[in-house]
């Protein structure tokens, strides 16, 4: 029994190996390029410039608010899909996942049509409450939530469907109503799924570009989040764009690391 690369399935076919390596390079080289081209000497100065901090802070605040909104609406929606016994459930699930595959720009246009000042809902928001969402920070939150919520819903619904509903029955026989059962039994048992969904949702919201620029525009300090700032900087000062990109890359890697831990931990 030699231990030198003896594989039971024979040698890897070149037809598969070559494109596989090419694919790997295709995914990695741009990121490596980002690192190589980074202006390391001037990095600290640029990183701590007011513009970068403003965009970063706005991004973090908006992504966090959007995630909170998604949690508030998405977890009950996931529960409804998994436990509600709704007719046409798979159709509703399909609708929920539409923003997942929809080009974000289209989402932005749709939001503008509905929530814009003359939109279906927007005009009432304006006349009744004096609230106008487009081109505001609140608009950024709405756009990000619209795009990111499916990630949370899918993740939480998966966890709910994997959770044994008999624990909820046990809680009911102990006198717990459905709300108490949800809070004290269901939610703790799906916590890993909720955390994974929240992280995914937050990461998606942080990177949101298309829907945000369409619905909220690009106003520094108000709606210019990191991705928008990168795009903007690319036209004026490419080095700043590289620095901003590096920051986003760092955040993504941290999120990925946290997720892997969660996912692998949850599967064990």
């Amino acid at each position: 029994m030699s231990r030198r690369g003896r594989s039971t399935s024979g040698r890897l076919p070149l037809v598969l190996l070559l494109p596989a390596l090419l694919g790997l390079a295709f995914l990695l080289v741009p990121l490596v390029g980002l690192l190589i081209k980074a202006p390391w000497s001037t990095l600290p100065d640029r990183l701590f410039s007011a513009d970068v901090w403003q965009a970063l802070r706005l991004s973090l605040v908006c992504a966090t608010l959007a995630t909170a909104l998604c949690l508030l609406l998405g977890v009950p929606l996931a529960w409804l899909l998994a436990r509600g016994g709704l007719p046409g459930r798979s159709l509703i699930r399909a609708f929920v996942t539409v923003p997942l595959v929809l080009p974000p720009v289209v989402g932005g246009v749709a939001l503008l049509l509905v929530l814009g000042r003359r939109g279906l809902v927007g005009q009432h928001l304006d006349t009744w409450f004096g609230v106008s969402l487009p081109f505001t920070t609140a608009g950024v939150v709405v756009a990000e939530a619209f795009v990111a919520m499916p990630f949370l819903v899918i993740s939480v619904e998966g966890a709910l469907r994997a959770a044994d509903p008999r624990y909820e029955e046990a809680a009911a026989t102990l006198g717990a109503g459905r709300w108490l059962t949800f809070r004290r039994v269901t939610l703790p048992s799906i916590a890993p799924g909720v955390v994974a969904g929240t992280v995914l949702c937050w990461a998606r919201a942080l990177g949101e570009f298309g829907a945000t620029i369409t619905f909220a525009g690009n106003f520094p300090g108000r709606t210019t989040t990191m991705p928008l700032a990168v795009y903007l900087a690319l036209e004026t000062d490419p080095e700043v764009a590289v620095v901003l990109s590096l920051v986003l890359l760092l955040v993504s890697v941290v999120v990925l690391a946290a997720l892997r831990e969660r996912w692998i931990g949850g599967l064990r």
Binding site: E169, A170, A172, T173, L174, G175, A176, G177
Partner: peptide, 9 residues
């Protein structure tokens, strides 16, 4: 519903 019955299971 079960939560309104005086039972233990």
């Amino acid at each position: 519903t079960p939560d309104r019955r005086p039972i233990g299971v």
